[in-house]
Structures are given as structure tokens and as C-alpha cells.
Amino acid sequence: MRSSRLQIPMQHITPLLLLGILITGILALLSLSFGTADISVAETARIVLYGGEAAQTSAAHIYIIRHIRIPRVLTALLVGMALATSGVVFQSLFRNPMAEPYILGVSSGAACGVAFGAYIGVFAFLPGSWGVPIFAFIGAIGASSMIYGLSGGLKSTSVTLLLSGVAMNFLLSSLMSLFMYFNREQLEDIVFWSMGSFASANWEKLAGIGPLLIIGTLLIPLFHRELDLLLLGEEAARSMGLSIKRTRVLLLIIATLLTASAVAISGIIGFVGLVTPHVVRMIVGPGHRRLLPFTILCGGLFTLLADTMARGLLENAEIPVGIITSLAGAPFFIYLLRRQKKEIF
């Protein structure tokens, strides 16, 4: 039988996932040892495994690993997982493989919410670890409900959905420019939100937003059946017993929350939710029971690698990671666009 995708038997899924986790662990360790301060892999491993005192190494190195690099690597992993997961959810909700938080304008909505919060000066009253995600969520939910309304929900064609996303991104980027114009002293902060970077990751931010990223990401696989049914369309899903309105609203909220949390901690990082699920789907198929665990894993890997490149490509400077993911993702998007006529998922 000719088969245009690999078919992995169910009993191989768990070993493969464990292998994936192991690879992620090794790559995370390599990424930790990577940076301006020259710390060997072995030394990094000692610091991670045995903690400070027993590691018998310099205090500066211990500090760099523990307080700069570990929170950064963890943030990169969690954000990648969250963005890839929300990509999967948007793709199923809109029945469109091109749907993705960045392309739909949901990420920009979150960034815009934060820029607005900064402009009205609300973060002086709300603690940053709460205020930023709240405003990111307000902006993101505004964008995702507008895109849902604009594109006509599930009945949208690819073209109307993507054009709605384009319109949304136009609107939001002009709003962002407006906030920047009014708020020139915070220009750099706002630019940071729109480019995406893990450079400012620290334990404090991670403690505030990390739980949201983890809970949201782990909630989604519980809906694997619902996400499958949504792919079949409203009528078939209803006839099989799905309460479609309730399910859609709930999933839209969780996916938006995931995007907003990711933007709140690292700014806009595009295309993770597009590239990762697509590649994983080619290997394990469209069924969400298998798709989600692998997508979560690969989403984390994707941003981890992108961030390592962001730190290492230039000698004395760092490239915002959002630029790297876009450089990888945009050509992929074009490739999907050209292919779409033939095959949808």
C-alpha cells in the first residue's frame, strides 16, 4: 500500500516520546553550556545535577547557569510548547493548517494589550508578573474573538481566514505604532514585545507565567477527541455527540491564554505553531492523541534551538529569537500556501 505518511504503531509511541524527552534534555544541557562565559558541558552538567557547592566550580559560573541560563532555557522550552499547542488548537478550530497565533494576529493582540497597559501606566500598580499577562490576555482574546467573527467562524475558507489575519495584523501594528508614538520613553520595551526574545527571562517572570504555560499546555491533550471531531466539521461533530459551541469557546479561550502567556514572557515569536504541528503531522498523522504529545515536545525543541542560534550566531550581540523563527517559518508558510490547493492537512 502506498502511504503518504509514516504510520507509527501505538506501542512505539511511548518509547519514542521518552527518546524525544531524552534528546530534549541533552540539547537543553548543550544549550545551557553555550554562551559568552566559557563553561564546559561537563561543568554545566555538574552544576545542574549536584547544585552549587558540590559542583566544585567557580561561583560566577554557578550564578550564570542557575540564574541566567536555566530560567532562559526553561522559558524557551515552555514558550515553544505553548505556542505549538495553541497552533494545533487554532488549526482544528478553524479547520485550517495555516491557522497559527502569529498569522491570525492573536500574538499581536497580546503584545498590543501589553503596550496599551504600559501606555496607561497600569503596571506601576499591578505587579509585573500579573499585570503583563492580564493585559496580554485581554489583547489576545480581543484579537481571537474578532478574527473568529471576521472570518465567519468555522465556515471560513482558507482565504478569508488568512485575509482576516492580515487585516488584524495591519490594525494591531498601527495601534502598536500609535502607542510607541505616544510613549517614546518606553519605545525599546515595546519594540522588544514585537520582536520576541528570551533575553530577559528570569526566575521571577517564570514563576509568575510558567504555571500558566504548563497548565494550559497540559490541559489541551485532554481534549484530543474533541479536536479530532472539530476537524470533521460542525454537522458530523454534532451528530457524533459533541456540544460544539461550548467546546469551541473553551478551546478558543485556552489557546488564547496560552498565546497570551507566551507573549507576556517573551514577546511575539511567530511560526512555532505553524511549523511544528505540520512537521509532526507528517510523521504521526492528524489524530490529536498522537499529534499533541509530539507537537508539545517538538515545539519546545524548536524554540530551544532557535534561541541557541539567537545567542550564538553573532559574536558579540544577540539576535531576537522571533526573527530567527520567522526566517525559518515564513518560507515554510509560502510552501504551505502553494501546496494548499492539493492537500489540506
Binding site: Q7, L231, L232, E235, S239, M240, G285, P286, I344, F345
Partner: peptide
């Protein structure tokens, strides 16, 4: 919806999905 699905099942008109489900 669930009780309804226990009583009646549907074969929609001309359903053909592009997804690579087995």
C-alpha cells in the same frame, strides 16, 4: 447531544475528508 448520539447516527451527504486518518 450525547443521548441523541446514542439513539441516532448520521452518514452526511458527500463527506470526504482530506485528513490522513487511518
Amino acid at each position: 447531544r450525547r443521548d441523541l448520539a446514542h439513539v441516532i447516527g448520521m452518514v452526511p451527504q458527500n463527506e470526504r475528508n482530506p485528513y490522513q486518518f487511518t
